[in-house]
Design a protein around this nucleic acid. Structure first.
Length: 355
DNA sequence: GTCTTCACGGCTAGGAGACC
DNA sequence: GGTCTCCTAGCCGTGAAGAC
């Protein structure tokens, strides 16, 4: 090998083995399996490698040979940037990251948003996938399934894959029942999240609604509606808002609309704590006292929920635990069980005055 | 006990041969 | 001669098996 070759080509196990006059396996063993060679030879090889500037076997080639990369993919249906701003997704990813770090694995976030336009083949890299949220329309999910690698789904269920869910319908119904029990003459509005196929904040019509299988929020809506129905009440679809993204600005727009109608609602069921937080902001702007003249229920129990004024009554869905459990199932190879996590109604100050 | 040889994995570049 | 298809070698490191 000429000196110019050495400059242009990176050192490999093979080229280093030629220079040192030992086999490729001996150098591999010096780095990764010290018990396979004498301490004396190992020290000599490591020293010579350091002098050459060779710092150990190539990870790409290692994963090629071993058939595993040490990487777990998290398949997401929205653009990646969304998951850095959404507090629920943040908690979920935190739980995953904790378990993967403990098991010396890396995390790769994969967005389906661009998958239709660009077939990068990125799904070939991870050893397994955590699939977060409904992916029925995500072309990348179809490609992930074709890899035949382990999959754990979260917040949706399909086929024989292991899954982690909560009972959204029951949790929403319980929260709504509690709020309605505190309300003398309920006038209800619902601020929903992703109930229909639309990118703008708007009120819904029932024939546009997603199926329950497609949307977590749709199941929460069914829960709220059941509580309303059991109380002998009705809610018109023009008092149900669709919010396309779980952001404060989107939620503010819906909250301002909901608190501008006549008669003013005195009980608002929200499908996330971000939305409920926006309702509290608008209530403050309009000097509507909470909980006396307006009762507000959230969903998720994000950290901010306990810091609002008054603190938010909400459904705790243990997002961190969801992430931990999903990663744990994948790492341990528990790939059949379908798990329903329990939820808890957290009673704070937005439904009744709690000392 | 120590070290080497060799098959293997998925993919690609390049060569060989067939066809129009 | 140009295009297409098929085949092979090479990439790179690991791990089992074999040699000394």
């Amino acid at each position: 090998m000429s000196s110019s070759d050495q400059k242009s080509k990176p050192l490999t196990l093979k080229s280093v083995s030629k220079i040192l006059g030992v086999s490729t396996a001996t150098i591999s063993n010096a780095f990764n399996r010290p018990d396979q060679l004498s301490a004396k030879l190992r020290d000599k090889i490591l020293k010579q490698c350091a002098e050459l500037g060779y710092h150990g076997p190539n990870l790409t080639a290692r994963s090629l040979r071993k058939g595993e990369s040490g990487v777990i993919g998290v398949l997401l249906s929205d653009p990646l940037a969304y998951y850095f701003t959404d507090p629920v997704a943040n908690q979920f990813l935190t739980g995953i990251a904790e378990v993967l770090e403990q098991n010396h694995k890396q995390l790769l976030m994969l967005s389906g948003a661009e998958a239709e336009k660009h077939n990068s083949g990125i799904e070939a890299l991870p050893d397994g996938f955590i699939v977060y949220g409904s992916q029925e329309k995500n072309p990348l999910f179809a490609r992930v399934m074709r890899t035949n690698k382990p999959i754990v789904t979260v917040d949706f269920d399909t086929g024989d894959y292991a899954s982690i869910n909560i009972d959204n319908q029951q949790a929403a119904e319980s929260a709504a029942q509690y709020a309605l029990a505190q309300c003398q003459k309920p006038d209800i509005a619902i601020l929903g999240l992703r109930l229909i196929q639309s990118d703008r904040v708007c009120r819904i019509t029932e024939d546009e609604l997603y199926d329950e299988g497609e949307s977590v929020s749709r199941r929460r809506l069914t829960g709220y509606m059941q509580a309303i129905d059991k109380k002998g009440l009705k809610i018109a679809s023009d008092k149900i808002w669709h919010i396309p993204h779980n952001t404060h600005n989107n939620a503010l727009q819906a909250a301002r609309e909901a608190l501008s109608i006549h008669p003013l609602p005195n009980c608002i069921f929200c499908m996330s704590d971000v939305i409920a937080g926006a309702v509290l902001t608008v209530a403050r702007e309009k000097n509507i006292p909470v909980p006396n003249d307006l009762k507000v229920v959230g969903f998720d129990d994000i950290p901010e929920a306990s810091r609002t004024n008054p603190p938010l009554t909400t459904v705790c869905q243990k997002s961190i635990e969801k992430g931990r459990l999903a990663a744990s199932k994948l790492v341990k190879g528990e790939l059949k069980q379908k798990t329903i996590l329990t939820t808890e109604l957290i009673k704070r100050g937005t439904v009744e005055n709690i000392a």
